[in-house]
Structure formats: C-alpha cells, structure tokens
C-alpha cells in the first residue's frame, strides 16, 4: 500500500506543477496570442490595441518586460487583454503576475460603484503564467480565453 501511496503522491505533484506553470520552456509571439484572444472571443465593447508607451499607465511593468501588448475598450466595460514577455521567468512569477492580479483587483474596486455588472467579468478574469510570459483576459467568455491561452502557453 505504501508504494501505491507514493505513486499517487508523485502523480499529484506532477499535476500541480503542470497546472500552475504550464510550460516553463514555452516561446511564442505575444502579439499572436493577443490577437487571437481579441478575435476568438466576442466582446461587448470592441477592443483597440494601445500604443506600447501607454501600457505603463495601466500596468507598472516598465523595466520588467521585454515586450507587452494590451487591448482595451472605451471604458464602457472592463474587457481587456494583456500579454507580457517578461525579462525572465522569475520576474514573471514574482513581479509581473502579482502586478496583473493587482490590476484586476483595482478594476473591481473601480467598477463596483460604477458599472457593477462588470465585476462578474473581473472576478472570472483569466491570469495565466508560463515561463517568462504572463497573459490576462477579461471577457464574458473565460472558458474560450483559457482554451486559446492553452494553445500558446501549455
């Protein structure tokens, strides 16, 4: 019985690792992922790609990322796409992913008393990290967002 328990524990360990950090060796074009998240999901408010020098106004990632791409709506909704290629995997894990999560929390606070129906989308926001990449999707279709991210980040 002991060896069965050991096998089960090792298998569980592998599963946990694969969920939290899908593929630490992954490499992809962040613009492709962002574009597919934009076209693969129907948004209530059409999203526009921000100029790269405007990203710092939303996410305090200056100096932490090699490249970033963000799509935003007009402000009528909380819908958003953000994908970052961080300096390295440690920066992605310790700096950028927490920043992304803080941004979502901040948006929840902003929208709570502004457009409360957007809070549900924010609470279902998908924040995914793989290797040096962090991706964020806020939409009314988080399942499709996860499927698209899996294609690039697993």
């Amino acid at each position: 019985m002991k060896w069965k328990a050991m096998i089960a524990a090792v298998a569980a360990g592998f599963l946990l690792v694969s969920c939290g950090n899908t593929n630490s060796n992954v490499e992809f074009d962040i613009n492709s992922l962002a574009e597919e998240l934009n076209t693969g999901i129907t948004y209530q408010d059409p999203l526009e790609k921000l100029d790269s020098d405007m990203v710092g106004m939303l996410y305090a990632v200056d100096g932490l990322v090699e490249e970033s791409v963000v799509y935003m709506g007009s402000g009528a909704t909380a819908e958003e796409i953000a994908v970052f290629a961080c300096n390295d995997a440690d920066t992605a894990k310790e700096k950028v992913e927490p920043i992304a999560k803080e941004h979502i929390e901040s948006q929840i606070t902003s929208f709570e008393n502004y457009v409360p129906e957007e809070v549900a989308k924010l609470k279902d926001a998908v924040v995914r990290r793989a290797g040096k990449y962090v991706a964020v999707s806020v939409s009314n279709d988080p399942d499709t967002a996860k499927e698209i991210m899996d294609k690039y980040m697993k």
Binding site: E48, L50, D51, D53, M54, L58, S110, N113, V115
Partner: peptide, 21 residues
C-alpha cells in the same frame, strides 16, 4: 471619459488625475 482619452490619444508624457465615477 478622460481615462479613455489619455489612453487613446497616446499622450504618454502627460499627467492625468482621472477615475471612473
């Protein structure tokens, strides 16, 4: 509206104090 303006006008070096609501 000012938040949206700053992001879409691309005024990266401009200061803004704006918030929803």
């Amino acid at each position: 509206r000012t938040q949206g303006f700053i992001l879409y006008a691309g005024l990266a070096d401009t200061t803004f104090y704006a918030d929803k609501g």
